[in-house]
Amino acid sequence: MDQTAPPPFGVHLTRTEENVAEIDALAGLLEEHGGGRVGIAGVLGDLDRRMRRTYLPHPRLLGRAVDRALTWERRDRRDLFWYPQGISTSVRTDVERDVIVTSWYSKRSHGSRVSFIDLEAKRYRHVLLVEPTLDPSTGSGAGRPGFRPLKAHAGGVVWHGPYLHIARTGRGFLTCRVEDVLEVPAGAGLETYGHDYVLPVRFAYQAANEEGVERLRFSFMTLDRSTDPPSLVVGEYGNSKQTRRLARFPTDAETGLLATGEDGVSRPVLDGEDGLTRMQGTAVVDGTYFVTSSHGRTTYGHVHIGTPGAFRTQRWATPPGPEDLVYWPQTDLLWSLSEHPGLRWVFGMSRSRLLRATRD
């Protein structure tokens, strides 16, 4: 670690064992019914829904900073039970198409899911996130494979190499491998709540804290690619009475997963304790933080630019209810999404224009 960097503070993550046997057994069961492991290529070859492009009127009704916007099909745009939250991209993955992935949580008991969006084709598909299981009560050797819906708010998602990381608030985050996407035929007898594909969790990063240190809430996450190797940056949503910290975990250059100490534990450094109220997402580019904040269903969101403790605000920059944030270097766009039913967009904002606006 850089000697000039601040020391780790009293929180850490411990990685669990991988669910290899459970996932392989589940894939085998589904193959017997004509489904099984299809990976990310299988999903991208079977996108069943269409994004609608939103042409920006004047004045900008989606927010002052929005340069490009797409919206979901009507059934997803108005859905009262699934809420979009996190966003990431296929940048520096093995996927050759320009793909955005978003996360959603269910207000029912259906857990959480991700949606893969092909930006060129403007098509997408939902994939249910699940925890794989082996039921020993069946008496069939290792047990009958199955799964249960993943219960997580999924406020942030990071796609890094072959892995998809899903934020789990006070419990840390969960990691999936995109090549583990499974097709679930109707005859398999497994409840998918209308989803044809599921993505099982490979392992978890479980959060813990030292005595006297408040646990870190993984409200949203992003990957800072301007560090070498990239850093996983985590932030807390909070009101004026809650902690609003920003923390940074170094990653391992070889695996792309979190770097660990000799004890196998991953420890972050604290980027700042004086984050903004109602932070929803962040992207970090060359040391500059871009942060979204929300202000209810009827008020446009803000984007804050700078560093912890020294932000300047672009007011009314986004639609109401902005969530997570990610940077796409090739286009210089910051992508975000909004959550409220009837007011849901996936939208891009020019990073350079935001910088100029805050300097004027």
Score class of each variant (00 low, 15 high):
103 S>F: 01
103 S>H: 01
103 S>T: 05
103 S>Y: 00
103 S>Q: 05
103 S>R: 00
104 W>K: 03
104 W>F: 12
104 W>I: 02
104 W>E: 07
104 W>C: 04
104 W>D: 02
104 W>R: 06
105 Y>L: 03
105 Y>V: 00
105 Y>N: 01
105 Y>E: 00
105 Y>D: 01
106 S>P: 04
106 S>T: 07
107 K>L: 15
107 K>C: 11
107 K>M: 14
107 K>P: 07
107 K>F: 10
108 R>K: 15
108 R>D: 14
108 R>W: 11
108 R>V: 11
108 R>A: 13
109 S>Q: 14
109 S>K: 14
109 S>A: 14
109 S>F: 13
110 H>I: 07
111 G>V: 02
111 G>N: 06
111 G>H: 04
111 G>I: 02
111 G>Q: 03
111 G>C: 06
111 G>T: 05
111 G>K: 04
111 G>Y: 00
112 S>H: 05
113 R>L: 13
113 R>K: 15
113 R>F: 06
114 V>G: 02
114 V>Y: 05
114 V>N: 01
114 V>S: 05
114 V>L: 11
114 V>Q: 03
114 V>P: 00
114 V>D: 00
115 S>L: 11
115 S>F: 09
115 S>T: 13
116 F>I: 08
116 F>D: 04
116 F>W: 14
116 F>E: 05
117 I>Q: 11
117 I>P: 01
117 I>S: 10
117 I>F: 12
117 I>L: 15
117 I>C: 13
117 I>D: 07
118 D>Q: 13
118 D>P: 07
118 D>S: 12
119 L>N: 06
119 L>S: 03
119 L>I: 12
119 L>Y: 08
119 L>T: 10
119 L>H: 05
120 E>F: 11
120 E>V: 13
120 E>C: 10
120 E>L: 12
121 A>G: 15
121 A>T: 10
121 A>P: 05
121 A>M: 12
121 A>H: 10
121 A>F: 09
122 K>R: 15
122 K>S: 13
122 K>I: 08
122 K>M: 15
123 R>K: 14
123 R>Q: 15
123 R>E: 14
123 R>F: 12
123 R>A: 14
124 Y>S: 03
124 Y>H: 11
124 Y>P: 03
125 R>M: 11
125 R>N: 14
125 R>W: 09
125 R>L: 09
126 H>W: 11
126 H>S: 12
127 V>N: 02
127 V>Y: 01
127 V>Q: 01
127 V>A: 03
127 V>L: 07
128 L>A: 08
128 L>P: 01
128 L>I: 09
128 L>F: 10
129 L>P: 01
129 L>W: 00
129 L>A: 00
129 L>R: 00
129 L>F: 06
130 V>I: 14
130 V>W: 01
130 V>F: 04
131 E>W: 09
131 E>G: 05
131 E>P: 02
131 E>F: 08
131 E>K: 08
131 E>V: 12
132 P>G: 04
132 P>V: 00
133 T>K: 07
133 T>Q: 08
133 T>S: 08
133 T>M: 08
133 T>I: 09
134 L>T: 03
134 L>I: 05
134 L>F: 07
135 D>F: 05
135 D>E: 06
136 P>S: 07
136 P>V: 06
136 P>C: 02
136 P>R: 06
136 P>A: 04
137 S>M: 06
137 S>I: 08
137 S>F: 07
137 S>N: 11
137 S>W: 06
